[in-house]
């Protein structure tokens, strides 16, 4: 059971739901099919550090945190920021 550092403190992973790679949503009014489906389907999926979104089911909060997908180390938990229309 991972002990995940959330912005509120360490929590068991069973209190959390994994959302996925932190993505940037393209502007829906200007996006192309390629860019939108890249957002929908393609993943970086590295074996290493990755910025991810998790949902804290107890505090009802979405947050982001960096995780090494090969070792399950975590670092830098933060609250999410709006990124509408901006590329990471």
């Amino acid at each position: 059971m991972l002990l995940v550092p959330t912005p509120f403190g360490p929590r068991n992973a069973s209190d959390l739901r994994y959302v996925g790679e932190a993505t940037s949503r393209p502007d829906p009014s200007t996006t192309s099919p390629e860019a939108w489906r890249d957002y929908l389907y393609l993943e970086h999926n590295p074996a290493g550090w990755l910025r991810e979104t998790w949902y804290d089911r107890v505090n009802r909060v979405y947050f982001q945190v960096e995780r090494n997908t090969a070792t399950n180390e975590f670092r830098n938990p933060t609250m999410p920021v709006a990124k509408h229309g901006k590329k990471a």
Partner: peptide
């Protein structure tokens, strides 16, 4: 519920 919270918290926190 979680879907609504996702939009509120990550895309439109304002």
């Amino acid at each position: 519920w979680e879907w609504a919270e996702m939009w509120l918290q990550t895309e439109h926190p304002d």
